[in-house]
Design a protein around this nucleic acid. Structure first.
Lengths: 189, 189
DNA sequence: AAAACAAAGTGACAATTGTCCTTTGGACGG
DNA sequence: CCGTCCAAAGGACAATTGTCACTTTGTTTT
């Protein structure tokens, strides 16, 4: 079950069995049902999570207009949390909820830092992952600004073909920053 | 002159004189005149740069429409490069050019990795910086999607008051993802 | 199987922003 | 000191997308 996690870590640097067991011992397993919240606005964020199974959405709700914007989906093999709140020990400004039943591995900031100090490979892993994350966010930003609604949707299909029929269109629209109606009109032809 | 750089590194972890000298010895000093290119599309990106002095813009030009979008400005105390090309050893997909005469410190990927292996503090520094970068990109993305042109401009003023009169409005418009004309209309009242 | 609910498609209209074009004013070089 | 260049402002109109209201389809519950 944690093989997925091990493969994920080893994509950056190979680990001995002992190292992997040691890393894993700092994580806590968590199960959540569909519609449950993993992170709620205004509450502290104690963990950063690796998704073993299921699908989640991280979103902000704009209080004034009632609009919602989805930052990120999390499916198997992805990390998810409110990074800002997690690192700064502040209250969450976003929500994360489950679109399906989920299984996660969570680590606290203290353990994360401890692991990084004890095991160079883990510090390195976090460095590499953060940089890859930055690169993909930058690509997304570029698409949001340069592309129109159609370009964005087409790119989404290309990038995440397996999510199209797994995630309700309403949420995909929100992720792409367009209204549900506009998205709906894009693929009628 | 390199005090700025030392302070920047020490904001994450304090360094001994020896450590700092060692880190600095891996960087190459570079001077560029206004309008010069630091990175050009389709060329390899050998360095990641820390800005000691001056101001740069990182942008993509959309070949078809002739539109330009500015990802990032770089001023004193900021890092700048085409991250994707730098890490993957691939050709740049963006351009970086100088809006003013500039002074930079550059490091190659090989030296960056070497430093990270030899000095845990440097690996840690990179990890922390990458995560902070991710957080600020995410905030920018949120603003781009939820906010209208006016919100975005007002947030820019709040966040970078010192850049408003340093950078031509055309470029600020491009950074905010609006046309120069629209931006122009926002602050007539 | 029927009722209740959530998701998706559609039409009409409004609002925001982009595009094109002209004008003004300041900076810089010969 | 004049001419050239470029940044910026603004008007007119078009295009894209959002909003609201309603219909249709599909899914879950009892």
């Amino acid at each position: 079950m944690s093989q997925l996690f091990r493969d994920h870590l080893e994509a950056v640097s190979p680990l001995t069995d002992k190292e992997f067991e040691y890393i894993l011992s700092h994580f806590r397993f968590k199960k959540l049902k569909k519609h449950a919240y993993l992170v709620q606005e205004d509450e502290y964020v104690k963990y950063e999570y690796f998704v073993l199974k299921g699908c989640l959405r991280a979103f902000v709700g704009d209080g004034d207009t009632g609009k919602e914007f989805i930052f990120q989906f999390g499916v198997e093999d992805w990390w998810i949390t409110d990074r800002e709140a997690f690192f700064q020990g502040s209250k969450a400004s976003i929500n994360i909820s489950c679109l399906e039943d989920c299984e996660l591995l969570g680590i606290t900031l203290t353990d994360r830092e401890k692991l990084g100090e004890e095991l160079w490979k883990y510090e390195h892993f976090m460095q590499v992952k953060a940089n890859l994350g930055y690169i993909s966010l930058q690509k997304r930003l570029q698409m949001m600004i340069i592309g129109n609604a159609k370009d964005r949707y087409e790119q989404f299909i290309r990038q995440y073909p397996h999510l199209i029929n797994r995630i309700p269109k309403t949420y995909i629209a929100s992720y792409l920053g367009v209204s549900r109606e506009t998205l709906s009109r894009l693929y009628k032809d």
